[in-house]
Design a protein around this nucleic acid. Sequence first.
DNA 1: AAAGCGGGGTA
DNA 2: TACCCAGCTTT
Length: 343
Amino acid sequence: MDLLSKKITFRHALAQWYAKAQRPLPWRTQPSLYRTVVSELMAQQTQIKTMLPYFERWMRRFPNFTALAEASSEDVLKHWEGLGYYSRARNLHKLAQQYIAAESKPRTQAAWQALPGIGPYTSAAISSIALGEAAAVVDGNVVRILARLNDDARVFKNNGEAVKAFTTTADALLDTANPGQHNQAMMELGATLCLKHKPLCTVCPVATFCAAKRNGTQDARPKIERKASIKIEINRAWVLQGDKLLLHRIAENSSQLAGQYELPTLEAVSAKTSKRRLLASRSRAITHRRIKEHIYQTKPKRTLDHSIEWIAVRDLPRITLSGPHRRWINELMSMHNSVAGTQ
DNA sequence: AAAGCGGGGTA
DNA sequence: TACCCAGCTTT
C-alpha cells in the first residue's frame, strides 16, 4: 500500500507535530495508569471537552483505584450524573474492585479487555499508553484519518464495520517503539485538525501523505451509512404534594440506568380519568431516536407500583437523575415556587 | 448482526 | 434538525 511504504516518514511527521501541538490534558501532564483508565472510560462516545470537568471532579473524589473500589454505588453514580452511558460508571466501579482484588494485576491488552466496560479500543488505549504495549487504537478519529489518507471510497454499513476494515492498516502504521504516543497523536490529529467537517488540511502535518486531500474528497471520507431516525413520544407525570415529589426509581438490577430516578410516566401514576394539565414539552435525542416528552401535572392513583417513590424536595440534590430530568425538575420546581410566591 | 445506551456540541 | 463524539454490552 502506498501509505505503508512511507510509514517511517509518516510516523516521524506525526510525532513531530504531536510533540508541540498536543493539548495539555490532565492525564498527559500528570499521567498514571488509573488516570488513563478513567479518562478512557469517560471518553467513550464523549467529546474530550465535555468530559474534562467530570474528570477533574472525579479525581478529587476518587484519586486512585482503592478510593474508587471502596466508594458506594450511589456516590459513584452521582459523580457520573449528566455524562450519560451510565453503565460506564458501574463498569468502572466494578473494574476498580476487581483490580484491587486481583492477585496479579492485568498487564496486557488481552488481560485488560477481560475487565468490565473494556473493549478492543479501550484495551488498546490503556495497554499502549500506560503499559507500552504495541496495540493500535481504532476509534472514530483513526477511521476518519485512514479513510482520508487512502481516499477510501468503500461504503460501510456502520461504524463497527469501518473500525474492522481499518484495523489492519492501523496496526501496520503503528510506531511500535512509541505506541502510546503514536495512538494519542492519531486521535489528537483527528480531534483537532482532521475534523469531520472542514478539516484543517492547510496546517496538517501529514497532508503530503493524504490521497483525499490530493483528490479534494475529504468531506466525502469516510462513507458510513446512517440509521433512519425514529420518533417517540412519552407522557410524564408531575405530582408534587407538599414537600414531596413522585419519582420512578429504576431497579438496581436493570441493565440500563440502574438506580437512577426519573419523572414517572403518566400511565404509571395517573388514572385514565383523572384531570391533567400540560406543564411543559421537551425534545431530546438518544442516538437515532428522537424523543418528545410531555410533562403533565396530575393527581396520583390510589395504588402505586413499588418502583414509584415519594422523594422529599430537599433530598433531590442527593439522588441521581439523568441530565434532562434534573433540568426539567429544576425548571418545574422554580415555576412552582414562583407561582406559590406570588400568591 | 443489530439494537440500545445519553448527553452535549455543531453546522 | 441531523449528525458526530477517545465504544461496549446485550439480544
